[in-house]
């Protein structure tokens, strides 16, 4: 069985409102990828709650770098779900 690691997941702006939470600690398998992460979030928060995270315009940043493809999570990683940004 793959070893488990703890990661921190952040939700911003509209997602924070939709989910009703800004940050959770999540237990995932070492080197968990995108689908493993979403599975773990679904287990934690429920299918309905996770739905907004799956929208096409939501970006995922790992340790503050936006990841367009798949990724492998390690202990202590900071994962952020980002709705469309706009500054200025």
């Amino acid at each position: 069985m793959a070893s488990r690691v703890k990661v921190n997941v952040l939700f911003f702006a509209s997602l924070k409102e939709d989910l009703g939470v800004s940050e959770i600690e999540l237990d995932v398998s070492m080197l968990a990828g995108r689908s493993d992460l979403l599975d773990a979030l679904t287990n934690e928060l429920g299918t309905e709650c996770v739905a907004p995270l799956l929208a096409e315009n939501i970006s995922i940043a790992i340790n503050r770098n936006i990841e367009k493809g798949d990724f492998s999570l390690e202990a202590g990683d900071e994962i952020a779900f980002l709705p469309p940004i706009t500054g200025g």
Binding site: F12, A13, S14, L82, P83, I85, T86, G87, G88
Partner: peptide, 14 residues
Amino acid sequence: IMDLLKTEAVFWKK
């Protein structure tokens, strides 16, 4: 700089 802040800077505005 202003044009890029609009689309590239990590902010959310409500």
